[in-house]
Every structure is written in structure tokens, then in C-alpha cells.
């Protein structure tokens, strides 16, 4: 495996490939993009050829180019026909990319844009939240998943290029977007609407499982789990103020200002898609997140000793 792909793999496919569709909701977007690009290039070539004729062509050709017929055909009929066909075809192609309502039985997930991370809430058939996560979305392959997109603060845009087009996340509105992955794998995403300081560092990962592996993942997540055994890391977490902003199910940590950390140890990335996730990067993030992701809403924790930092990192890495 080439080195870059390797890093991409650890970062949940981030940065994502833009013209490499992996499901039925991104194929039309890619097709349309290519059609526009190639069509535009053809039109540009025709215009440049006409310009060449106008400048250096034989007098008879130049006369024809300036004639009424050429103007009517090239200047009026051609653009009207081409643009109309493009409009109709484009609407037909992309019309049902934005979903209008959930289909019966369809998997539903609410994804909320936050400055500068993603709150992920898996819903039951009735639309009630059943499990919480952040910065990562798990889906089964070969099946549509309805995303309910909203925002907690400013406008963000949800974009997982290999699985769907962009969809804005607007405060006070709920936009619906369908995605579907055809092959297992991780698919990177990126906020696509400038939302302040670390906007460029607001990545996302979609993990697509085979149906069996998804069932196992889901059962594992829904199963009641024993409270994690008390540890030095847990004690530090609960007494250092972390719990004011973070939730860890089964503990007193119920804060909502930051990402849910109940399963942080099993995430592909840290800091919303920007860092690989291991006990080293966990410790580095806790001590120094403001250097790694300048302006993000978690303060630096420079007061910990190395021993404390490592204990915290071990505790969090163990939260699978």
C-alpha cells in the first residue's frame, strides 16, 4: 500500500476523493460534473475556433461567421437548446437526491453540525434517539440511510463526496439527505460551508459494514454494558471538569457541549477526522488541542503530569 493511502485509511478516508462515486446517490452527481466539464470544454473549443476564424480566417469564412444565420444558430438556438436540455436532464438526474420523507422501515440518523465537529444520533423507526456518537457514522451496505441534517450554531454543509452530494445544515431547519454505500469501507467527509476558524479541520467518516457485521456492531452498541471499572483515568476525567462537556454512558459524565465519548476508543479518528486515534494522539489532544486544532471549543489542559495524561488517554482508549 502506498504511504498516502495508508494515512488515508487511518483517517477514515480523509481527505475524500471527489470524483470517485461509491453509491447510487453520488453517481448522478459525478456524471453531471463530468458532463458539465466535458461539455464546457467542447463549447470553449468551438468558441476559440470561431475566434480564430474571425481573426485570421479567409475573408469568405469570416463573412459567413458574421452573417445572420451564424448568429441565430450559434448565438441563440445553440445555447437555448443546450441549456434547456442540460437543465431538464440535470433535474431529472438529481431530483431525488434530496429526500422528502423517511420511507417505511428506513434507517434514520440525525447528524447535527457543531462548531467544529458532528453530533451523531441514531434514531428508531419513530424518529426517537436510541444511541449517541460523534464524528463517525456506521451504516450497512446496499441499503439507503436517511440523514436528518441540522445545525446547533451556524450553517455547515454535510459532504461525503463518495456517497452523496452536499447538503447544507441550517439552524432551525431539518434537511433530509439519503446516502448509500455499495461496498464495505470507510468514506471520508468534510464540512463544505465555511463555519469559522477550524472549518477546514471539520472532517467526518462513514464506516460501511456488510449486513452481518453491521448487525453485530449495532447489537454491541445497544447491549447494556457494565459500568467501566473505576480507574485512575476515570477518576481524573470526573474530577478535572471534562464531565461538564462530555458524556460517557454509565458514569456521572453527562455534559453535552462536546462529543459523546462513550465509544471514543473505537473511533477511527480524533478531533473530527484530523488525527489518527491512539493513546498518544489522545494524550496530545487533551494537553494541547488548541495547537492541533486552533480555535476549537475544548480548552488546553497543560496542568496534567505525564502520568495523569497517560492515565486519561488509557482510560479513553479503552472506551470501545
Amino acid at each position: 500500500m502506498p504511504a498516502e493511502t495508508d494515512l488515508k485509511a487511518v483517517l477514515g478516508g480523509w481527505p475524500p476523493a471527489v470524483l470517485d462515486p461509491a453509491g447510487p446517490y453520488s453517481e448522478p452527481v459525478t456524471l453531471l460534473s463530468w458532463a458539465l466539464l466535458i461539455g464546457g470544454a467542447v463549447v470553449l473549443a468551438i468558441v476559440l475556433a470561431a475566434l480564430g476564424v474571425a481573426l485570421w480566417g479567409a475573408p469568405s469564412l469570416r463573412k459567413r461567421l458574421g452573417g445572420d444565420k451564424a448568429i441565430w444558430i450559434g448565438g441563440v438556438a445553440f445555447p437555448v437548446v443546450v441549456l434547456t436540455v442540460l437543465l431538464v436532464w440535470g433535474l431529472w438526474l438529481t431530483g431525488d437526491l434530496a429526500a422528502k420523507a423517511p420511507r417505511p422501515g428506513e434507517m434514520r440518523v440525525r447528524v447535527t453540525g457543531e462548531m467544529w465537529w458532528w453530533r451523531v444520533s441514531y434514531l428508531d423507526k419513530a424518529g426517537r434517539p436510541v444511541m449517541q456518537d460523534a464524528n463517525e457514522l456506521h451504516v450497512p451496505i446496499g441499503e439507503t440511510v436517511l440523514l436528518e441534517l441540522d445545525s446547533a450554531d451556524v450553517i455547515h454543509s454535510f459532504w461525503v463526496p463518495r456517497l452523496a452530494g452536499k447538503m447544507d445544515m441550517i439552524p432551525g431547519r431539518r434537511n433530509l439527505l439519503r446516502i448509500q454505500a455499495d461496498q464495505p469501507g470507510t468514506y471520508g467527509g468534510q464540512c463544505a460551508e465555511y463555519c469559522g476558524g477550524p472549518h477546514a479541520l471539520m472532517g467526518f467518516a462513514v464506516v460501511a459494514h456488510t449486513p452481518e457485521s453491521f448487525k453485530r456492531w449495532r447489537a454491541g452498541r445497544l447491549a447494556p454494558r457494565p459500568a467501566p471499572p473505576p480507574s485512575r483515568g476515570q477518576e481524573l476525567f470526573l474530577t478535572s471538569g471534562c464531565a461538564a462537556c462530555h458524556t460517557i454512558a454509565g458514569t456521572e459524565a453527562r455534559g453535552l457541549a462536546g462529543p459523546d465519548l462513550t465509544h471514543v476508543g473505537s473511533r477511527r479518528t480524533l478531533g473530527a477526522g484530523i488525527l489518527p486515534n491512539n493513546r498518544g494522539t489522545l494524550a496530545g489532544w487533551i494537553a494541547d488541542s488548541q495547537t492541533l486544532k486552533p480555535g476549537n471549543r475544548m480548552p488546553n489542559y497543560k496542568q496534567f503530569t505525564a502520568e495523569e495524561l497517560n492515565a486519561l488517554a488509557d482510560y479513553l482508549a479503552g472506551l470501545k
Binding site: 504511504a3 487511518v10 494522539t281 489532544w285
Partner: peptide, 15 residues
């Protein structure tokens, strides 16, 4: 070259 890739992959830049 592999070492540089591993340094990136393991996130040593976090610290």
C-alpha cells in the same frame, strides 16, 4: 520514506 509515512500514520505530530 516508510518512516515518514509511519510518523504521519501514528500521529506523532500530536505532540
Amino acid at each position: 520514506t516508510r518512516g515518514k509515512a509511519a510518523t504521519q500514520r501514528l500521529g506523532c505530530g500530536a505532540c
